[in-house]
Design a protein around this nucleic acid. Structure first.
Lengths: 331, 331
DNA sequence: CCGGCATTTTGTAGCGCTACAATTTTTACG
DNA sequence: CGTAAAAATTGTAGCGCTACAAAATGCCGG
């Protein structure tokens, strides 16, 4: 760190003996200027340690080539797949993804969104529970990713088929021959859909649903809820947990009762998180394909940036079973 | 989304019947203007759906009240504690933290840093392996958080005492009465320090170190390395893993040999990650107190923002044992 | 060696905001 | 009431960059 002020494009221009416009041109596409000047400018930039000011660029140009992503919690790394999915279509086009989390527990999702909009993102992906008010005057194309309670105005919706995934989980257990299948459910919107799918599938098979509902979605919630379920239905041979963390809690509850997975009780989770993929846990799970959601969101947004008159759409992404070692036929 | 262009401060001023300066004043501190105008401005803002342009604010003012944080990988949620630690001291002061990851495997850490600097962050925390070149002309106060290989120029260093933590882990096991203590080590800088601490502690106790070194730091690496260790030293009664993920891998290796944790083999990890805290895994671990590193980094940066002539410092943060159920005396 | 055209380079005017000095309004008090 | 001091409000000049039209330069055949 040097005590002089940070160099500007004008400093570079002076140093290289060219006009500021030329430096600007260089920044946008070095190929467009003569080799002689190009070298001069490049050298000046290196020598001065110049870095363009994004603020100035943003202000002077209408597009920022960046897309905002609002997530609810960094601790829930499911968003990483979403992010990589977005980047897979955006990076080549020179777009950047900017991330903001909503500071869980503080309902800062509006603030997170505003922050991103304040940075002039060209478009927005909201992967958290949005409110209508938030979306009313966004001024940029927006997609809501994942299942959400509200039906937001003017935004595309790219949704994981949590309902279908719930059925898929239940059908997997039914297919293995289980008939006493409990469901450990959570409190969020996605859980509600997974629960509905589960219920539909077991009822279609003529089996009675056992649902134990929690007030949260954490491992601890999973533990308590699964304990309650096993208490009430000691003959349960399989548990479908609303997400992988809760499945881990269910493991703990099963272990606490002296039972084994999958010998006594099969367990299937949801999200196909790193947890599920772990060699030690080896948890059968439902993969909701966030990477595809991310890529689709990005494509949709690009389309709406190109043509803002496009009508909002709604897309459903099919989940996939990730078969591992925690589910087996009943004894 | 409305098709008109996004409103500016001038639109608000016109709508509220005041000067732009007044609106600017309102934005900085609503208390400083008369109640009458304050209401008029507030109403105009709501009605127009106005959001200040951060780019313009940044450009017009010298400080952006934001601090950049460069991490290596979003998938490794250890950074969350760091982030919260920073926020705990910064939020009250109106500072914001901006995050960028280095896109693991692409060595994009310079790009991440440049991106943050392009946004005019007032200061920088680098929680990834920095290169000297990167830091040469940063123009802003910088601290490097966590242990790193290089000795960077002009930056503060706030370091977890990984060496001390390694000793702490070994001493915990020695204290329980173990004498055949293996160490499953990883490939990064932090691992090297933890390894050195382990070695020092066991040698001081007159016990022979068994170290099995991996080429990575993942769960899979932990599995392979622990398997190798148990192969060579079947009488091992305790394993110290270089991080919690690798500890999970060690669990898998122990289970694969038909042994139990902690009855046959005790396991201690490092990082005190959510994984370790899990009720099911209940893993004894070393907490490297990233929250404190974050808070200290923030404080240090604030001091250097206030007085840029301050000399870089080096601080060591003491780790702490997080005692749980995977360590016990040997049979 | 020149016109005519393509290519490269430059000047000018903002983008939306804040700093700060200047001005106007309000308040306090003799 | 008048006036000085305090409080509230405003005008002006950039911050560092890009867009775009205008100017300069290079290149070609005749």
């Amino acid at each position: 760190m040097n005590n002089n002020r940070r160099p500007t494009l004008y400093d570079v221009a002076t140093q290289a003996g060219v006009s500021p416009s030329l430096v600007s041109l260089f920044l946008k596409d070095p190929e467009r200027i003569s080799e002689k000047r190009r070298n001069a400018v490049r050298d000046a930039i290196t020598e001065l340690g110049y870095r363009p000011s994004r603020a100035a660029t943003t202000l002077a140009s209408s597009s920022t080539k960046s897309i905002g992503l609002v997530i609810d919690d960094y601790r829930n790394p499911w968003f990483v797949d979403l992010l990589r999915g977005m980047e897979s279509v955006l990076s080549n086009l020179g777009y950047q993804v900017m991330l903001a989390d909503s500071r869980p527990g503080e309902n800062r999702i509006k603030e997170a969104t505003d922050g991103l909009l304040a940075m002039h993102v060209d478009a927005l992906v909201i992967a958290a529970e949005p409110s209508d008010a938030m979306l009313a005057k966004t001024w940029v194309p927006t997609v809501v990713a994942g299942w959400r309670k509200g039906v937001p105005l003017g935004a595309d919706l790219i949704t994981n088929d949590d309902d279908g995934g719930g059925s898929m989980a239940a059908n997997h257990l039914l297919g293995l021959g289980h008939v006493r299948i409990g469901h450990v459910s959570g409190s969020d919107g996605a859980s509600a859909h997974r629960r509905a799918g589960y219920r539909r599938a077991v009822e279609a098979a003529g089996v009675e649903p056992f649902i134990s509902e929690s007030s949260g979605t954490s491992e601890e919630d999973g533990y308590e809820t699964a304990s309650r379920l096993l208490e009430r239905h000691p003959d349960t041979t399989a548990i479908f947990a609303a997400n992988d963390s809760m499945a881990l809690g269910a493991f703990a509850a099963i272990k606490a009762r002296g039972l084994a997975v999958p010998a006594d009780v099969s367990v299937i989770g949801y999200d196909n998180s790193p947890l599920a993929k772990s060699r030690f846990l080896d948890l059968t799970s439902i993969d909701n394909r966030s990477d595809i959601v991310g890529a689709d969101s990005a494509r949709r947004l690009l389309a709406r940036i190109a043509d803002p008159t496009l009508e909002p759409e709604r897309t459903l992404i099919e989940p996939k079973l990730a078969l591992r070692g925690t589910t087996a036929p009943p004894r």
